[in-house]
């Protein structure tokens, strides 16, 4: 079975977590990336979930939301949202990771609405959740989103989550690092290329001098992802 874009994104996102990091884990794909990191190179990472859960061990079964009962059972702290947001605001959180709908080249994310007038949007998106707080207050931000010209836009209509602390953008086609506040393509995934990334990016692509192919997940990481998400609910969506 080929590695899916979802599996590549999860594997890359997991690599961004260092052992002993305190990590704010957002909804959807970040939920599984945290589990992969915990089960591989970052066994001592601590996961903070904005609804008020702190875990030092990964959830034993696939999570559809951070409030699923397996994510609460075995937690080391059940608390209030404001307690965890307080840790974030005092600077105790190393990294946060979130998904996005639209991003500009400076890492500003829009998850609120598409269209010039917020009160009368062309497309109403769900909103910030805790994303804007994580983006404003975490030391570094890891963003995971599909790679599409309509999503990677020269300018976003609404800045939900400011891009000041974005360290990496992981897409379905490649990985961007931020140099002087601007996205630079650092690697392209297997079966993608610099050319393909450029065609699907809504700003003139900047490419790192040492751009290379994204490392494929090891067989161990693939096994963990497929064991955890056997039906591909998160990692083989739309495949």
């Amino acid at each position: 079975m080929d590695v899916s874009p979802g599996e590549l994104m999860v594997a890359q996102a997991a690599r961004e977590i260092a052992d002993r990091d305190v990590v704010f884990v957002g909804m959807r794909l970040p939920l599984i990336a945290f589990v992969v990191a915990k089960r591989t190179h970052a066994p001592n990472a601590i996961g903070l979930f904005e609804l008020g859960v702190v875990r030092d061990a990964p959830a034993p079964e696939l999570l559809y939301t951070m409030g699923d009962t397996p994510n609460v059972r075995g937690a080391v702290w059940c608390a209030r949202t404001v307690d965890l947001m307080g840790l974030l605001q005092q600077g105790a959180v190393d990294a946060g990771f979130i998904g996005g709908a639209e991003m500009d080249r400076h890492g500003n994310l829009n998850t609120t609405a598409i269209g010039a007038d917020r009160a009368h949007p062309t497309v109403q998106l769900p909103g910030s959740g805790g994303g804007a707080d994580i983006a404003s207050l975490a030391k570094r931000l890891i963003v995971i989103m599909p790679h599409d010209k309509r999503r990677l836009r020269d300018k976003v209509d609404f800045i939900t989550s400011p891009g000041d602390h974005v360290s990496v953008l992981i897409t379905t086609l490649g990985v961007f690092r931020f140099v002087d506040g601007e996205a630079v393509l650092a690697s392209y995934h297997p079966r993608s290329s610099v050319q393909v990334c450029a065609e699907h990016t809504g700003w003139p692509l900047r490419v790192a001098p040492n751009v290379s192919e994204t490392a494929s997940p090891s067989s161990e990481v693939r096994r963990i992802i497929r064991g955890y998400d056997p039906d591909g609910f998160w990692t083989r969506r739309g495949d």
Binding site: E50, T81, M85, Q89, H120, V123, G127, G129, A132
Partner: peptide, 20 residues
């Protein structure tokens, strides 16, 4: 929000932190 169906609503955007 997009079409006013079944009626127009007013939204006050928050983040989870500002809601808390």
């Amino acid at each position: 929000m997009e079409q006013g169906i079944p009626r127009r609503i007013i939204v006050r955007d928050h983040s989870n932190f500002t809601m808390a």
